[in-house]
């Protein structure tokens, strides 16, 4: 079993590093998860993570790349809702990484 220790909290992860219990998520947990990926979360990251969580709330599933781009574009405009911007923020794998850092299940419709 994979674990992440954040202060005095132990968080269970699956083999790919996604939260096993979505309720374990917090901003502190997100920062720790990001650190494991070599990412320091900026305001630009946070707004995408919030939207990914919004997507999950609305549709009860994690977005694949295309829907994530479309959703971000619909909320923040095309300057942010494009693959270049999202790839840059999330090491070239925006759907997988944004879901991981936002505490969502691994997206199923991604290669």
């Amino acid at each position: 079993m994979n674990h992440l220790t954040v202060h005095d909290q132990t968080v269970a992860l699956d083999k790919d590093g996604y939260l096993l219990n979505l309720a374990d998520w917090s901003e502190t947990v997100a920062e720790s998860l990001a650190q494991r990926e070599g990412i320091e979360l900026s305001a630009e990251h946070w707004e995408i993570l919030q939207l990914a969580r919004g997507f999950y709330d609305e549709f009860q599933l994690s977005p694949a790349n295309r829907p994530l781009i479309k959703y971000v574009a619909s909320q923040l405009g095309p300057d942010k809702g494009n693959s270049l911007h999202l790839n840059r923020l999330f090491n070239g794998a925006p759907a997988k990484l944004a879901a991981k850092l936002a505490g969502l299940p691994k997206p199923t419709n991604c290669l």
């Binding site: 997507f55 609305e58 549709f59 009860q60 599933l61 977005p63 694949a64 295309r66 829907p67 479309k70 959703y71 419709n109």
Partner: peptide
Amino acid sequence: TANLQALPMFG
């Protein structure tokens, strides 16, 4: 039914 709502987002 919530998942169905995502169809337009998936194109």
